[in-house]
Write a protein that binds this DNA or RNA. Structure first.
Length: 405
DNA sequence: TTACCTTTGAAGCAG
DNA sequence: CTGCTTCAAAGGTAA
């Protein structure tokens, strides 16, 4: 991917969008110019995407219902959690990661012309809540009104390189630099966030992070409970933050999914050896998009393998309109902004080396010269390496014979 | 148990 | 400035 430094401010994504579309077009052209088999592959690739998109609308209604149901369930969980959380959190927010969500706040948007986030204008739920809620996804359900069709052109002052105001004293500080116990001062209106932000219920039955016995508490926010946790369980900044994960690794939302609200989990061993919490990177636009769409794709394609799903999502991402992508770029920008506010001293470098990666052998790929998707499909189509879900496809089988006879 | 896969984008770093 | 690397999510898979 092209790495464009927008050079001017934090209108991240703006230029990137244009470039990525351009690249996409170029890719398509390349495919068309290629040999016959590669054209077939290109078609197949498209069909892969289309296939998953075709069923989208029929499901949408059911999806929405499911999402609403989940919202209700969450609200109940939330109440339960609130009952228990005061006991649970003795300042050891990292021992029992409460909830993977940044504090849910209504932030005046310094980037948009009308820097108001209207609770009543929440027409778009950008990111659903899959089982794992990203810390900052509280920002997601913004109205279209709050997404500039062309965020790139918006005057922004948030840029890492051109002067990100990590310590800006602007409005945000008023929200985040809360003294312990000061959280209650923040009483964001959460109604605007109550719209469907939850993952589509998969017809296959997987991915049902939340019970469906919900009350339609429109005040529910995936992060609201974190926000209301009270003084305990606070980030040093005074704010509960889901980007903080226990050093032990497994993502924060696991706890939520597995009933973290039922009972505080006692882990005496860990209490004795408190480790440094890991502050995760804020999600970029595509990650936010993936978070939202993953469940849907899983339901439509009956796939679970993330690698395959991510490929589909990657194609869909490119198929999005500029305006649609802009929403996610905007959300990502807000995430970064909030992240910076919460962790002024954090650097992406802090997490370098946390993942031990085996040496990659991508460079030795014999399929060099083909675009990644083609290479991947070639691999999938090979009888000896075909992924199970593709192996069962008659269509793929025919392609196999065409390609490898 | 843990890294890999796979995607895009942001950020860090070396030259 | 350019180009490369790492990490962010996710869950099945392989080592």
């Amino acid at each position: 991917m092209p790495q464009l430094s927008s050079g001017g401010g934090d209108d991240l994504g703006a230029n990137d969008e244009m470039i990525s579309f351009k690249d996409e077009g170029e890719q398509e052209e390349k495919i068309q110019e290629n040999a016959f088999t590669e054209r077939d592959l290109a078609d197949l690739k498209s069909s892969l995407v289309n296939e998953s998109e075709i069923n989208q609308s029929p499901n949408s209604a059911a999806v929405r219902r499911g999402q609403q149901a989940e919202q209700r369930g969450f609200a109940e969980k939330h109440r339960e959690h609130l009952d228990g959380v005061s006991k649970q959190q003795d300042g050891g927010m990292y021992k029992t990661p409460t909830y993977p969500g940044y504090p849910f706040l209504m932030l005046p948007d310094p980037y948009l012309p009308n820097s108001s986030v209207s609770p009543s204008s929440n027409k778009v739920s950008v990111v659903q809540q899959s089982h794992g809620m990203h810390p900052l996804t509280s920002l997601l359900p913004y109205s279209n009104d709050h997404f500039s069709p062309s965020p790139p052109h918006l005057p922004t002052d948030m840029s890492q390189k051109t002067g990100v105001h990590r310590h800006q004293s602007q409005d945000l500080s008023g929200y985040y630099s809360l003294p312990p116990g000061g959280v209650s001062q923040i009483t964001p209106s959460m109604g605007w966030q109550s719209q469907s932000v939850y993952p589509a219920l998969s017809p296959c039955g997987f991915r049902q992070p939340y019970p469906s016995n919900l009350s339609s508490a429109s005040s529910y926010s995936r992060f609201s409970h974190s926000l209301m946790l009270g003084p305990s369980g606070m980030h040093p900044t005074g704010i509960p933050h889901p980007a903080i994960v226990p050093p032990t690794g497994k993502q924060e939302h696991d706890q939520y999914d597995r009933g973290m609200y039922v009972k505080p989990q006692v882990e005496p061993k860990r209490e004795k050896e408190p480790k440094k919490p890991v502050i995760k990177k804020p999600l970029n636009a595509f990650m936010l998009y993936m978070k939202e769409m993953r469940a849907k794709v899983i339901a439509e394609c009956t796939l679970k393998e993330s690698a395959a799903i991510n490929q589909i999502l990657g194609r869909r991402w490119h198929a999005l309109t500029r305006e649609e992508q802009a929403k996610y770029y905007e959300l990502a920008r807000k995430e970064r902004q909030l992240h910076m506010q919460l962790y002024p001293t954090w650097s992406a470098r802090d997490n370098y080396g946390k993942k031990k990666r085996r040496k990659r052998e991508k460079q030795q790929d014999s399929n060099t010269g083909k675009d990644p998707m083609t290479k991947h499909l070639l691999c999938l189509f090979r009888p000896d390496t075909a992924a199970p879900f593709f192996r069962r496809s008659n269509q793929i089988a025919s392609v196999n014979s065409a390609l490898f006879e």
